[in-house]
């Protein structure tokens, strides 16, 4: 959730609800809370609407507002699940798709790979599922995002296999990223928001969107693979974590590199698009990545 909605008081409220009323009770409380945000948080509604307009082109304004509400509720459920899991209140069934493929990627190469994800599903829970790879996963994220995720994953505990690389470090943490991949580790990068950095304009949900090129530029330079990580909640107690899409850069010439990287970003955009079609209310892209494009 956005910074405004993901505050400590909110987390405390839902944590307490979970303990008192269980998972279903906490879910039930989400509906009035999300209705409040739907009515009063114009910024949240307007950013969510940029996605909803493109995903549900045929919807009228009323149905679009309902879709935004559904998106808020869905994200709330993902957050509640996260705390439910971490607090040890219960377990979810997790189906990990493509595990053998990434396992063989690691055993066939000295290098690690990039785990490219997006603001979809409960991606933090995926990190727990990937622990069996027995590799350190480095999450590229700003310190502000850290606070919530750090608590969730208990990052900082020496035994944990998830660590943070801050993009606010020297050269955006790029030197550390190169080093840890070279050492055989995994770096997780968000691929659906460019935050004003290098991006490529690609086709996405019938429009032209700006998606970051960083993951593919690094993979091309290091000759390592990019594994797309897309988790989805498929029932109240089950997640599917899909890591079956592997994109491997094959840059042949310097001159064609820029175009080749754009094609890789487009490939990722298609995978995201398929995800949005299958799980329309689990891509929490609360940002106008289609900025500059007309309606």
């Amino acid at each position: 959730m956005g910074k405004k909605r993901g505050n400590r008081a909110g987390f405390w409220f839902f944590r307490t609800s979970l303990k008192l009323f269980g998972l279903s009770g906490a879910y039930a409380l989400l509906y009035p809370v999300c209705l409040y945000y739907l009515i009063f948080d114009r910024h949240a509604v307007s950013t969510a609407m940029t996605y909803v307009k493109r995903r549900f082109r045929s919807y009228n304004i009323f149905r679009r507002i309902c879709a935004v509400y559904k998106l808020f509720v869905s994200q709330g459920k993902n957050l509640i699940d996260r705390y439910y899991h971490v607090a040890g209140l219960g377990q979810f069934d997790v189906e990990l798709r493509g595990y053998d493929r990434i396992k063989s990627l690691l055993s066939n190469s000295q290098k690690g790979f990039i785990l490219l994800t997006a603001h979809v599903g409960n991606w933090q829970a995926s990190m727990t599922a990937l622990k069996k790879l027995n590799k350190t996963v480095y999450l590229l994220m700003t310190p502000e995002e850290n606070a919530a995720v750090k608590n969730t994953l208990n990052i900082g505990n020496e035994k944990d296999k998830a660590k943070i690389i801050s993009p606010e470090k020297f050269l955006g943490g790029i030197l550390e990223i190169l080093k840890v991949i070279d050492e055989g580790n995994i770096v997780s990068i968000m691929g659906d928001r460019s935050y004003g950095h290098n991006s490529a304009r690609v086709s996405l949900l019938g429009g032209k969107a700006n998606l970051p090129v960083g993951a593919f530029s690094i993979a091309t330079a290091l000759k390592c693979s990019v594994v797309v990580l897309l988790p989805a909640k498929v029932s109240s107690r089950k997640y599917i974590i899909d890591v079956s899409h592997v994109i491997t850069p094959r840059c042949s010439s310097k001159s064609g590199k820029e175009e080749e990287i754009r094609a890789l970003v487009q490939q990722f955009a298609r995978i995201l698009e398929e995800y949005a079609v299958q799980y329309p209310f689990q891509w929490f892209v609360f940002s106008d990545i289609w900025e500059g494009e007309g309606e």
């Binding site: 050269l171 955006g172 550390e176 080093k179 530029s217």
Partner: peptide, 27 residues
């Protein structure tokens, strides 16, 4: 920018045989 830094590291590795581990410690 930072993505150019990726290329510089690759240049140092391929053309001068330097190790990325050493480079990371010498910002």
């Amino acid at each position: 920018d930072s993505l150019d830094a990726v290329e510089i590291v690759v240049i140092l590795q391929r053309n001068f045989g330097l190790d990325v581990k050493d480079i990371e410690n010498r910002k």
